[in-house]
């Protein structure tokens, strides 16, 4: 007989973080599409625009789900767990921030070195979208890769 286990607040915090990073990943894809808009033909751009709208809808659903999870399943007295250093997910979050920061810094340096005020091949919006894409993609992928520790429930 399966015993239905109630998920603890600490586990719900982990679930909330996973949803949040999924939302960040979807947002990064949207910025990725906006970046490629400058590199493709009109027909493909139309298809990607539709894809971006679908992704925007998914992003909204995932973000609202994460907020709902936080408000409905994590009691106010337990919300200190979000910033608790005694959590593997906090360590992973911090490491993801570091990875994202480093790569964003490298990208910004590359852009500043390879472009100048008068000889930039693309408009400013392109570079801003590219930076957002890389930053959010690295941020979210780092989290998912680091979070996938090989751990199985043991009795």
């Amino acid at each position: 007989m399966n015993k239905q286990r109630k998920i603890s607040p600490a586990d719900q915090v982990d679930n909330h973080r996973r949803l949040l990073f999924l939302a960040m990943f979807l947002l990064s894809l949207i910025f990725g599409i906006k970046t490629t808009a400058y590199l493709i033909d009109e027909e493909t751009k139309e298809v990607l625009n539709i894809t971006a709208k679908v992704l925007a809808g998914l992003f909204a659903i995932v973000l609202i789900s994460s907020i709902y999870l936080k408000l409905a399943y994590i009691p106010r007295k337990q919300r200190h767990l979000f910033n608790s250093p005694d959590s593997y997910v906090t360590q992973v979050f911090n490491q993801s921030c570091r990875n994202s920061w480093v790569l964003t810094f490298v990208l910004l340096t590359l852009i500043s070195v390879t472009t100048s005020q008068y000889s930039s091949a693309y408009p400013t919006e392109f570079y801003l979208n590219l930076i957002m894409f890389i930053m959010l993609m690295v941020f979210s992928l780092s989290f998912f890769v680091l979070f996938q520790a090989v751990t199985e429930e043991e009795f």
């Binding site: 982990d14 959590s87 593997y88 520790a149 751990t151």
Partner: peptide, 11 residues
């Protein structure tokens, strides 16, 4: 703490 925290401590 979360189950993930316990399992990552163990390994």
């Amino acid at each position: 703490v979360s189950r993930k925290t316990i399992s990552t401590i163990e390994v």
